[in-house]
């Protein structure tokens, strides 16, 4: 049986832990609000960009542009996988879910050359230990997220793709559904597959400068840039949401623990008092 003093110590330590977890919950809630706002702010930009890109792409033959060219699954020899995890833990199964999905994708692409691009410290540490080839790593930037980060990733990805280093680039990330729900998403970044040819011809009578193919090139890069930026924001939001929930649960169970310990403490104290009274009264009787 622990002594009174030991129980008191435990109550104190759990109380301070609870303070920390509830503070972390507040911080996550504030950060979540910020990244959420950023996602909303990025929307008009990416919408306008997509509109221009779509109509310009529909004027060009799909197979003419290397970044748009469709590829058959059998022809894929090498794959780059971008794994987006968090830099920090304490956010439930957030990181583990992504890692598990990435492992699944790696298994699916067995026999092909696979290289990883790790965004976030947790994924990098895990895959490093497992002995996978990590081509690039981007760590410790989620607390000061800037648009330059996504541009860097985009540059690496497109340059190595155009050089023929990879036939396909996949990105795996947590998508923010709501504070309590994240979706794991696996998406093909390159070659660009998601948008279909459109009939929209609103650029029909436009003048272009520089020529169309060069413009298209830049537009596709910008498009990828924004895509990656959105992924980073989504993942960051999802991380904050997951941490908020995890910390909320931790705060709750710390509260329960304090209640249990206090009960135990009071029991023990009452026992001691009773014991002392019995001792005193039996000593008095013996006199």
């Amino acid at each position: 049986m622990p002594s009174l003093k030991e129980i008191k110590q435990r109550i104190n330590s759990v109380t301070s832990t609870r303070q920390v977890t509830s503070a972390m919950k507040m911080v996550s809630a504030a950060k979540l609000q910020k990244t959420q706002q950023w996602i909303l702010n990025a929307r008009p930009y990416s919408d306008e960009l997509d509109k221009i890109l779509l109509s310009l792409a529909s004027r060009t033959l799909r197979d003419e542009h290397p970044l748009l060219k469709k590829i058959d699954e059998e022809d894929v020899k090498s794959v780059a996988i971008i794994v987006v995890t968090a830099d920090k833990g304490l956010c439930g199964a957030f990181n583990m879910n992504i890692i598990r999905k990435a492992e699944e994708v790696i298994r699916k692409n067995k026999g092909k050359k696979i290289e990883l691009i790790c965004v976030g410290k947790k994924g990098k540490k895990y895959f490093e230990k497992k002995g996978h080839t990590i081509r690039e790593e981007y760590i410790n930037f989620f607390n000061k997220l800037e648009f330059e980060h996504s541009r860097d990733i985009m540059n690496i990805v497109t340059t190595s793709f155009l050089k023929g280093k990879y036939d396909k680039t996949i990105i795996i990330f947590n998508e923010f559904k709501s504070a309590i729900q994240q979706n794991i998403v696996e998406k093909q970044l390159l070659p660009l597959s998601e948008f279909e040819e459109s009939d929209e011809k609103f650029l029909a009578s436009y003048l272009f400068e520089p020529e169309e193919s060069k413009l298209l090139d830049e537009l596709i890069k910008k498009h990828l840039d924004v895509q990656i930026w959105r992924v980073l924001l989504e993942s960051s939001s999802a991380e904050q949401g997951a941490r908020m929930i995890a910390m909320d649960a931790a705060t709750d169970s710390a509260g329960e623990m304090i209640a249990d310990l206090t009960l135990e403490y009071n029991h023990k104290r009452q026992d001691n008092i009773t014991k002392e009274i019995i001792e005193v009264s039996s000593a008095a009787e013996a006199l």
């Binding site: 221009i52 310009l56 650029l203 009578s205 436009y206 003048l207 272009f208 400068e209 520089p210 060069k214 413009l215 830049e218």
Partner: peptide, 16 residues
């Protein structure tokens, strides 16, 4: 391709 000025009624134009 250089600075250009735009006023009302400019031709439809897309540039980087």
């Amino acid at each position: 391709a250089g600075y250009f000025g735009v006023m009302y009624g400019h031709t439809a134009f897309l540039t980087s």
